[in-house]
Amino acid sequence: MEPIIKIQNLKKSYKKRKAKEVIQAVKGISFSVNRGEILGLLGPNGAGKSTTIKMICGLVKPDAGTILIDGINNQDKRLKALNHISAVLEGNRNIYWRLTVRENLEYFAGNRGASRKEVAEEVASLLEKFRLKEKENELVNRLSRGMQQKLAIAVAMLANTDVILLDEPTLGLDVETSYEVRELLRSVASEYNRTIIISSHDMDVIQDICERTVIINNGQVVTDDKVENLLRLFEVRAYKIALGGLLTERQLLLLEQKFPHYTYIPDTFQSSLEVDLEKSEEIYDLFDILKLESTVVESIDRKSINFEQIFIKIVKGEAEHEMAQSS
């Protein structure tokens, strides 16, 4: 399937104010997004994620590289490309607080050249879907943060674009509203066949609704894989072992050489050892080390790992895996 977004060798640098220093925010990023996919775009602060998002939205001009949105180069034909993409980059700040819910929807539709009549049906349907019908004539500044957030997403939906880009869609929301927004996003992607790109620091959200993630660090893509692949990959190789006694100096030295990121909590009665294996076969090496001093193994548990831990490992460079381009 032809990707809806194709990004190739994207670069962007900024000059620091009042200094001659040039910061290379994005250093040759390439990835693509398939139609109807929910993609998580992740990265720590300062990784180049925001700059990449702005470039996809046509808000920042790249120094080099191309961004094709439904085959349209967003630098050569920016306005045409903008017909295919909408975004909520600042959540509830992306809407007018001095207008009502309905007025916001109609105003933003007007700014895309649509009349109130043309969007009347869609506005009504979105108000229902986003459970904003009762508040349609309420001023936005009187709404809860969750409702404001939902309205901002509804505004992006009303643009009727193939791609919707959301930055921190659940930031500052209570648990219940956060789940409601997640459900909405899932249904938006499936029912309306929209492609959604989500950038978030909430790994629960990413794990919960994204099919694939692209992790950016230091201006480069460090991982591009399906969420389930990453979870499987890391989960299968993380082990927690309960030992009947202490490990010797010799064993610790060997562990250090073989598994540099191991965690050992010594205890005379029951020590704990946590090891991440790069390959499944390495479990035999681990047992060889334990066997050396006849250390008693009381239990072995596959350590449960959540997406947040995977993200931290990838970003810190503690774990690497071949980037598998999902198809």
Binding site: C57, L59, L82, I85, S86, A87, N111
Partner: peptide
Amino acid sequence: EQLSMSPM
């Protein structure tokens, strides 16, 4: 930024 993203 919302205004800047209008295809108009």
